[in-house]
């Protein structure tokens, strides 16, 4: 369970976020809404532990994430605005590196399966440099398809730049993740088909 209490963040002289509180249970997704500049990305970075909140506390399974450290990071998968892909490496090399960093050894038949599911099978040897924005996003997102993915997904605008088919595929994957007892926090401006009955909404500029 991910829980936030009285979160606040200052940007310069003014409060960007104040008194943000929510709770996400296993099997639920938290959809953070708000106009540009309302602090969505900042909130996600606070949830990851990248930015310490100026006030308040974030707990994972009852323990503040500051103290949970490695245990928390093992259960966390964060995908920010930037795709964290190296232009000069191929799709396969990039993904292999991401998985090794997450402490997961991947087999090459698992690679084939994941790349096929994400529609990238015929491009695995291509350097990321030659891919379009949408394809890069798909490569970054394909980390979600590997077996034993972490329990908590924090996704910043995961649907941006994706085509309709990929949006559907991602929301299906998200649905399966929630059914398996996973949690997700995401931001998006689009109306996307999120799994019904499992969505909590948080409006930041309300």
């Amino acid at each position: 369970m991910l829980e936030a209490r009285e979160l606040a963040c200052m940007k310069g002289p003014r409060w960007l976020l104040r008194d943000v509180a929510f709770c996400v249970d296993p099997g639920e997704v938290l959809w953070i809404e708000g106009r540009n500049g309302s602090g969505k990305t900042t909130l996600l970075r606070m949830l990851c532990g990248l930015t310490p909140p100026d006030e308040g506390v974030i707990r994972w399974d009852g323990q503040p994430i500051r103290d949970a450290g490695e245990t928390y990071r093992r259960e966390l998968l964060y995908l920010g605005h930037a795709n964290a892909l190296k232009d000069d490496l191929t799709i396969e090399e990039n993904l292999r590196f991401a998985m090794q960093l997450a402490g997961r050894a991947t087999l090459s038949d698992e690679f084939d399966a994941v790349l096929a599911q994400c529609g990238l099978a015929d491009r695995r040897e291509l350097p990321v440099r030659v891919l379009s924005q949408g394809q890069r996003r798909r490569v970054a997102l394909s980390r979600l398809w590997f077996a034993d993915a972490p329990k908590l997904w924090i996704l910043d605008e995961p649907f941006a730049a994706l085509d309709a088919e990929s949006v559907q595929r991602l929301s299906d994957r998200l649905g399966r993740h929630l059914e398996a007892g996973g949690l997700a926090v995401l931001t998006t401006h689009q109306e996307v088909p999120l799994p019904a009955g499992r969505v909590r909404r948080l409006r930041l500029d309300a």
Binding site: R73, Y78, A82, A84, A98, A102
Partner: peptide
């Protein structure tokens, strides 16, 4: 610039 550093920071190691 490309976000890899965020991923390194959030890695379990």
């Amino acid at each position: 610039a490309d976000g890899t550093l965020e991923q390194l920071t959030l890695a379990p190691q």
